[in-house]
Design a protein around this nucleic acid. Structure first.
Lengths: 254, 254
DNA sequence: CCCTGTGAATACCTTCACAGCG
DNA sequence: CGCTGTGAAGGTATTCACAGGG
């Protein structure tokens, strides 16, 4: 995915490729697991296996951050955790609001991975007055009327939209007007936002459709008898590359 | 996202680029909306805007499917809906099982986008005996013990994992052993699977972390005063490219 | 004359392979 | 001697720009 800052005119050396940024969270998760097991150092080979990528890619990714490894040894786990966290901006606290507290919104509110990594659910917002005051994941749901006030009072810059498709754009507009500049959209719609606002999209049915495409292809191959090369290809497979999101939802500058 | 069939040695002409495949569902959604409004034809420019991509990309994507447009006019909406559906394998019925019926699993079960596009929730499975028999989205939850039987009886080839991280790999192994060859994984873990099995991954916290990265960068730019070029870049932005998932979770052959 | 389809140019990502540090 | 860091090579994806059909 091209994505993001395509339009940026040769910014300073600080330019970390988007594809690399998308993998940093994966590395971070693997490193955190190692850290919890008190593993002091790790080689690119080992860490790559844990993260589901190949080691050359991992080393190149890290090379954009700086030279944090030791030749002949590997990487210091704790140090790398810190460096990646800092690069991702996780050493600071990001208040987040979730709009739309249905099953999905509730799942997000309960999701532990949030709090553990710099994110704090500042508020839950829903349009249904019957929800108001009800606690979800220990946080009382507030009515949409309060949206602007909540954003401003908490200095929220990241919003999560988990509403039905129809409500997404209006909610998005209000979030942006109130000062939100990054949006994670779970509603199956294309949002339009002004320049300077990032949107990332997570779409369940799209993922399934992509799987169906590959599934269909597999079936076709079988039927087509032994198309020699194809069959062999499926058999031989070395580095079990687990696409994290290599091409996951793209960020878009505007 | 590299992804998928990287290892495949020059398969037949049928090779549609992975990035294109990832966008087909987007086009399909936009087209379906047009179809519901009884719009008969659409130009690449209009459709591209609706899908949040640029028109050159869209035309190139369609060119891999064949020549379905009419010069000087555009594309026939109904015809294109059919062609894309067929290409994605959505003209057939895909039974799907969802394992792990917490908030997220319930959200998935209730998600309308499933049924509407060739997918049928064949069963909901959870390890909690207390859940057994309870209907979610009108479908009774079954216990994990039944997993193998369910897969086989229903000819399921696509499984969705919405369990906690710890349970994901064992569940995955059982799904695969029972015959599932495509997995959509919502648990924050790297799954290992044998060759020939595709895994796609959706990870909420990763998306948020990527947003945080860009958010941090924005803040930094402001602080750095007017770094001329950067500021200008944010201002000038033409085609509001909404990355669908250009690089969304990558498929991995195994 | 408008809009598709596509070669050619460009940008981006991944992988290879190895120099060189610890 | 092992493992990082990185030039260079190879692939893939995006964008440009225009030929040519309806």
């Amino acid at each position: 995915m091209a994505t993001g800052r395509t339009h940026r005119p040769a910014t300073r050396s600080r330019g970390i490729p988007e594809a690399t940024v998308a993998r940093l969270p994966l590395y971070l998760r693997a490193l955190t697991a190692l850290s919890e097991r008190s593993v002091p150092t790790v080689s690119s080979e080992e860490l790559a296996a844990a993260a589901g990528v190949n080691s050359a890619k991992l080393r190149k990714d890290f090379s954009y951050l700086g030279s944090y490894g030791t030749r002949g040894v590997g990487y210091d786990v704790e140090y790398l955790v810190y460096q990646i966290s800092r690069e991702l901006g996780l050493t600071q606290d990001w208040p987040v609001v979730i709009v739309g507290i249905g099953n999905l919104g509730a799942a997000l509110a309960n999701y532990g991975g949030f709090a553990s990594r710099g994110f704090r659910v500042a508020a839950l917002i829903d349009a249904d007055p019957a929800m108001a005051g009800k606690p979800v994941a220990g946080i009382p749901v507030q009515h949409t009327d309060e949206l602007e006030k909540i954003i401003k009072d908490n200095g929220v810059s990241i919003g999560v939209i988990a509403t039905p498709a129809g409500a997404a754009q209006p909610v998005c507009d209000r979030l942006v007007a109130a000062g939100v500049t990054s949006i994670l959209n779970f509603a199956p719609t294309v949002l339009s936002v002004p320049d300077g606002v990032d949107v990332r999209k997570v779409d369940l049915s799209i993922e399934l459709q992509i799987l169906a495409f590959h599934e269909q292809r597999k079936a076709g191959e079988e039927a087509a008898g032994t198309e020699s090369a194809a069959a062999a290809a499926v058999a031989r497979n070395d580095s079990a590359e687990q696409g994290p999101d290599g091409d996951v939802p793209a960020v878009m500058p505007a």
